[in-house]
Simulated scan of single mutants.
Amino acid sequence: MTSERDRQKELEHRERTLREREVELRLPEMETNIHATDAAFYQTVKHQPENIQKPWMKKLILGGKLFALGVIALVAVKIASVLAGFIIVGAIGWVSYKLFLESKKTNL
């Protein structure tokens, strides 16, 4: 029984030494492979669309948008002021009707 254990230990020892030798042999090969292949160098280039607008064209478009926004704001203010005028005149008319023209009924 001890011989069986000794034999098993001897086999494990041999396997371990074989693995260590294999690692020692493969390590230099792997290092040479790593250092031998240099990474390819690619020059990067900024993507430029084919129909590039000129800077002055961009500014012109932005100015047009700003002008349109200003016109829309002025129209909105004008409409709001007219509506407010109608509401004010209507409120004054209603109050004056209630005060002066509505018949007063007195309860005796």
Rank of each mutant, 00 (worst) to 15 (best):
S3E: 14
E4Q: 10
D6F: 14
Q8G: 04
K9S: 07
E10G: 11
E12V: 15
H13A: 07
R14W: 12
R14V: 06
R16E: 10
L18Y: 15
R19F: 12
E22D: 15
V23S: 13
V23W: 15
L25T: 07
L25H: 14
P28M: 08
E29A: 12
E29S: 09
M30C: 07
N33C: 11
I34T: 07
D38Q: 14
A39N: 08
Q43F: 05
K46R: 11
H47P: 02
H47F: 14
K54S: 02
K54T: 08
P55G: 02
K58D: 00
K58W: 01
I61F: 00
L62Q: 03
L62E: 05
G63P: 01
K65M: 04
L66S: 03
L66A: 10
F67G: 02
L69E: 05
V71N: 04
I72M: 15
L74T: 03
V75E: 01
V75T: 00
A76I: 02
V77T: 07
I79T: 08
L83A: 06
G85K: 14
F86I: 12
F86R: 07
F86S: 06
I87W: 06
I87L: 14
I87A: 02
I88K: 06
V89R: 04
W94F: 14
W94M: 08
V95Y: 03
V95N: 00
S96Q: 09
Y97A: 07
Y97P: 02
Y97T: 08
L99Q: 07
L99G: 04
L101H: 04
S103N: 13
S103H: 14
K104D: 08
K104V: 13
T106R: 11
N107K: 15
N107P: 09
N107E: 13
L108H: 14
